[in-house]
Amino acid sequence: MNLKYIEPFIAATIHVLETMAFTQATAGEAYLKDDQTAMGDVSGIIGMTGKESSGTLSVSFTKNSILAIVSNMFGDEITELNNEIKDAVGEITNMISGQARQKLEEMGKSLDAAIPTVITGINHSIKHITTYPIIAVPFSTDNGDFTIEICLEEEGVSLRRKIGRETP
């Protein structure tokens, strides 16, 4: 996976939260993730497929961050991880994927997306659909942190090989 393909996901995440939830999110440094444990309490996952590549995007929110984000979206305070929160995480994941894929298309990479699924629970697992390396990008907001993970395989070339590690 070419690292330039990570940027659209970062930009899309910031744009979606700013537009729909009036929330400023700041991206930290991207890193390679070696396990499947989610970095939050509730995660949205969406599969993406195209002619030349396929992959997954996941978005994992800590409880505090997603409660604040969805409260902002609705204009009502929400205090527990209920079905409304799960539904909102699915839609946020869907929008981030859509925005990112729009930008990827401008870069010559066309991907379609499936319907997202949502998983909750402390230390829940996220299984990306391929064995290719997973890039994680942490974000911070005034009300807590969240992390996006991108796993994109491209014509058999993995990012891990490109940065000098062993290909899985």
Binding site: M73, D87, A88, I115
Partner: peptide
């Protein structure tokens, strides 16, 4: 919309 979140936001 299959997401109630979006239906609620658009309705508002």
């Amino acid at each position: 919309d299959d997401f109630s979140t979006m239906r609620r936001l658009i309705k508002k």
